[in-house]
Design a protein around this nucleic acid. Structure first.
Length: 900
RNA sequence: GGGCGCUUAGCUCAGCGGUAGAGCGCUUCGUUUACACCGAAGAUGCCGGGGGUUCGAAUCCCUCAGCGCCCA
């Protein structure tokens, strides 16, 4: 017998292990079934399960379980990415905490060995936690982006793209993180609003003592590298200065004043200093005007004079080489202060205004990034993006919801060269070797590089490998095929690529989505990596605030699972995941949805107590009773609604269709109607009710399994619908044949309406529950009377009714009346009834009906409506008018009887 | 500044041309043998404002306002 209270913790782990052991999660490349593939967007190996993972993984698991039940050969590919910067930082912090030497002191090999050791010990956290959520991933296929096989794929792709000219080495400005000492991508940079200042600096015009051009800047320290001043070509104020030269204070360099539209006459003074080596916009301006691009900050953002020492020049009252030399090695912010102070002394600081601006910060290191001119490896993203754009335009890939296409297009059409090198130790080391003369050999292995070098030089030369590693996203981009064994031509690659759907948040479109598309199409003969891209929202707290540790509003999914069960969390997520909306999630929401899981448990428990048990031989088509037919028919509709919803990625509709059917049809009415039968004598009627009950319960368990895997499997196993752990592979329900469903619906709808009306009346009349009454039916058709007779036991129980009889002669005194279809139902409540209340109640019902009649009449009275509206709409309104008029007539009669 | 989205019951949200809905909350009642994580009943809406299209607009178009996000 099922426990009186549901305790998910008692079986979740056992069921998960049972499924896993039985191979239920495993894809089967040898099967004849149509595959269904979801590639997990690989979580960061340093990560632990947060509520955002719970959302995305619940959605993926729901899809996978559903398709698996539909008979598809489901592959949900698990794994993690190596998270270059994050992992390296974790291990460096660990070393520091242990008081060990830092990575530079220990050397690259020892350090990376240590990272692998860390990965072995702690890297599996998130994959263990996903099991708690019920995620049915094919674990034996788990991959890691640094695995040997995936590394082969990375080298293959790099070398191939290089040979195709789509990867190249270039010296450009990059986002440099002065704390982590590596280049990072645009997407790893976040703007933060900072309160700073706008300094107005005077640059003396060459050869015109006392004449200045004033430039406004937020970064005075970069003046050391200024090589131009730009003004707008149409700015009359500066027209005379264009072509002249000005002296950079402190350094004494003479630089041109150039006309360039980049300069905004409205901003600052309208003149801007140009430091091409330390600002992206300035870099472009500098390139347009062919000026020098000296770097004045070292990798740690300290002043470096290497590139300007030679041209420092003393200018009386303006430039002071000794001062500048004294800045060497100082941090950029220390240097800023010193420079501003010195300029003020020289009278070259015109003014300082408070100014707030967006300062780019590295999202990992947290310090302002410093644009730097460096040699890096770049991928020609623009070329790779083109076929991806085309694939979305032509519908070969589909965003759900569609609106995200816009975001995607906007970014892809304006995509910049992708800097793929990182100055880290943890990652795929770039397969490029340098000869002493600087010749670069990009090959799959060192041996091949040596061979290439021998071929070129005709002799053995010393080769040095590029120390840098590739961006983590480079290897993640290959995930949809590298995990399947590519570049080997495996059966898996042939079978499971392309995937069916990629599920992720909108914040990831530029990361996984775009990059997997580029690499997938390029290396898989133009085949897209996935057909659908389902974009879900972010999880927020109840107030709609983004969850963050600093706000203290984070929710731990594992803690929620401990408290309410994984099913409750999963069902909540499904119910709240509408299209294109963020999910506001609070404890209370999970608690609310847990009730539904409990409800299923309790209903099952009741059925078990009444001897309902699986009976595979029971044929729904053989059902003869309206009750059985009605619930089977309702189940058919629930199945159709749920299936349609899942096909459309409408997890909210799926959840609510199941909820309504289980709670409002199966529990509220079917089980209640079944009670008198179950309590009655054994026989055909009871057998049929039990047959329908067990059949529909089986349908419900299968229908809900994708969202609520644990409780449904537990019940399935407990009842014995199949062997233990078999629900996960049970077939997805389909509509069953139901004879005369329409008639059954009419009959049950009538009974439901009768009981509801009687209940409403009693509640409004304040009739004590202890009082039971007969029902007298006036003007009832023989059909209604027959129905009343058939359902008398249920009506007695649900409506607190004694008997039902046609009204003979005049109604007794003191009746309460309600209109159900053609019938006026009367409850003799002499002495109990409050006539004033009854009149009010009837008058209110009449008022409501009148209101409807007015609306319908207004429509039908409009000749344009009758002439132009669709025929069925007009007809529907005519019917409504007649129905309301009849109802009013009966209500009037009822009122008249009371008044008499 | 450019783009996207949102604004419907107290709260969270469906509905997206033809009778305004759900869950939660609220009020009242309830030990009828599955369930108080329950049952029954009830109340609550100028569907953000204004204009337009249409026989008909929460739904389509324009506009304004407020909120949120992304990109500059």
């Amino acid at each position: 017998m099922l426990d009186k209270t549901l305790n998910p913790g008692a079986f979740e782990t056992r069921l998960y292990e049972g499924w896993e052991r039985s191979g239920a999660f495993a894809a089967d490349p040898a099967s004849n079934a149509v595959p269904f593939t979801i590639m997990i967007p690989p979580p960061n190996v340093t990560g632990s399960l947060h509520i955002g993972h719970a959302l995305t993984m619940t959605i993926q698991d729901t899809l996978v379980r559903w398709r698996r039940m539909q008979g598809r050969d489901a592959l949900w590919q698990p794994g993690t990415d190596h998270a270059g910067i994050a992992t390296q930082m974790v291990v460096e912090r660990l070393l520091a905490a242990e008081g060990k030497p830092d990575r530079r002191a220990m050397g690259r090999q020892v350090f990376t060995d240590r990272v692998w050791q860390w990965k072995a010990e702690s890297g599996g956290t998130i994959t263990q936690q996903l099991r708690r959520l019920g995620a049915s991933l094919d674990w034996p296929r788990e991959r890691f982006t640094m695995d040997e096989g995936l590394s082969v794929a990375v080298r293959e792709v790099f070398v191939t793209l290089h040979k195709q000219g789509l990867i190249y080495r270039d010296r450009r400005l990059v986002n440099w993180d002065p704390k982590l000492l590596t280049a990072i991508s645009d997407l790893e940079v976040e703007s933060r609003e900072m309160k700073g200042s706008l300094w107005y600096l005077r640059y003396p015009v060459e050869g015109k003592p006392g004449e200045f051009i004033t430039v406004a800047t937020t970064r005075p320290e970069t003046m050391l590298g200024d090589t131009a001043v730009a003004v707008h070509p149409e700015d009359a104020r500066f027209a005379a200065l264009v072509g002249k030269r000005v002296i950079v204070p402190l350094v004494g360099r003479a630089i041109p004043v150039v006309a360039d539209e980049y300069s905004d006459p409205e901003k600052g003074t309208g003149a801007v200093k140009i430091t091409p080596a330390h600002d992206f916009n300035d870099f472009e301006v500098g390139r347009r005007h062919g000026v020098a691009m000296p770097t004045v900050l070292d990798p740690e953002a300290r002043v470096s004079l290497d590139e300007i020492a030679a041209d420092l020049r003393a200018v009386e009252g303006v430039a002071d080489p000794d001062f500048v030399r004294g800045l060497a090695g100082q941090d950029r912010f220390v240097a800023r202060k010193a420079i501003v102070a010195r300029l003020e002394e020289l009278g070259l600081l015109e003014k300082v205004e408070p100014h707030s601006n967006q300062v780019p910060h590295g999202d990992r290191g947290g310090v302002p990034i410093e644009p730097r001119l460096t040699w890096q490896w770049y991928c020609d993203a623009g070329t790779l993006a083109k076929p991806c754009i085309e694939a979305v335009e032509t519908g070969r890939m589909r965003f759900v919801p569609k609106q995200w296409e816009n975001t995607f297009f906007a970014w892809m059409r304006d995509i910049q060269p992708w800097c793929v090198s990182r100055q880290l130790w943890w990652g795929h080391q770039i397969p490029a070797w340098y000869a002493p003369d600087g010749t670069i050999f990009v090959e799959r292995t060192e041996d091949e590089a040596r061979a290439a070098a021998r071929a070129k030089f005709g002799a053995e030369v010393a080769l040095e490998r590029d120390p840098d590693v590739l961006d983590t996203w480079f290897s993640s981009a290959l995930w949809p095929f590298s995990t399947l064994g590519w570049p080997e031509r495996t059966a898996e690659v042939a079978r499971y690529y392309p995937g069916d759907v990629l599920v992720t948040g909108f914040d990831i479109i530029f990361f996984w989505v775009a990059r997997m598309m580029m690499m997938g199409q390029h290396f898989m003969d133009g085949q897209v990596p996935f057909r659908d891209i389902y974009i879900h929202g972010l999880v927020r707290d109840e107030k709609g605030q983004k969850m963050s540790k600093s706000k203290g509003n984070v929710m731990d999914p594992l803690e929620l699972i401990d408290a309410y069960g994984a099913d409750a969390l999963r069902f909540t997520i499904c119910a709240l995941t509408g299209p294109g909306r963020d999910v506001k999630l609070g404890r209370k929401r999970v608690e609310d949805h847990r009730s539904f899981v409990t409800k299923i448990w309790n209903a099952s428990r009741f059925l078990e107590m009444n001897g309902v048990a699986p009976n595979a031989t029971w044929d729904p088509a053989s059902a003869t009773s309206p009750l059985a037919r009605w619930i089977l028919d309702a189940a058919n509709r629930a199945v159709a609604e749920a299936t349609t919803a899942l096909e459309a990625y409408r997890f909210d509709d799926y959840a609510s269709a199941c909820y309504r059917f289980v709670w409002n049809s199966y529990c509220d009415w079917f089980i209640e109607f079944a009670k008198p039968v179950l309590n009655g004598p054994d026989g055909a009627e009871k057998d049929e009710v039990k047959g329908a009950a067990q059949h529909v319960l089986g349908t419900i368990l299968r229908l809900l399994h994708p969202a609520i895997p644990f409780v449904t499997e537990e019940l399935w196993d407990h009842f014995g619908y199949g062997p233990d752990y078999s629900l996960i592979r049970a077939p997805w329900p389909e509509a069953v044949a139901v004879a005369e469903a329409e008639a059954a619906r009419e009959e049950l709808d009538w009974v439901v309406k009768l009981v509801s009306e009687v209940r409403t009346m009693r509640a409004e009349m304040n009739v004590a529950p202890s009082i039971t009454t007969p029902l007298l039916l006036r003007d009832a058709t023989p059909e209604s009377l027959a129905r009343a007779a058939r359902w008398i036991e249920a009506i007695r129980r649900l409506g607190r009714v004694t008997e039902i009889a046609p009204l003979q002669g005049d109604p007794p005194k003191g009746v309460a009346q309600v209109v159900v279809g053609e019938t006026t139902v009367m409850l003799p409540l002499e002495g109990v009834i409050d006539f004033a209340a009854e009149r009010t109640r009837l008058a209110k019902a009449r008022g409501a009906a009148e209101g409807e009649i007015r609306k319908v009449q207004a429509k039908l009275g409009n000749p344009d409506f009758v002439a132009r509206a669709k025929e069925e709409v007009v007809e529907e309104n005519r019917e409504r008018l007649v129905a309301f008029q009849a109802e009013i007539a009966r209500l009037d009669a009822a009122l008249a009887r009371i008044s008499a």
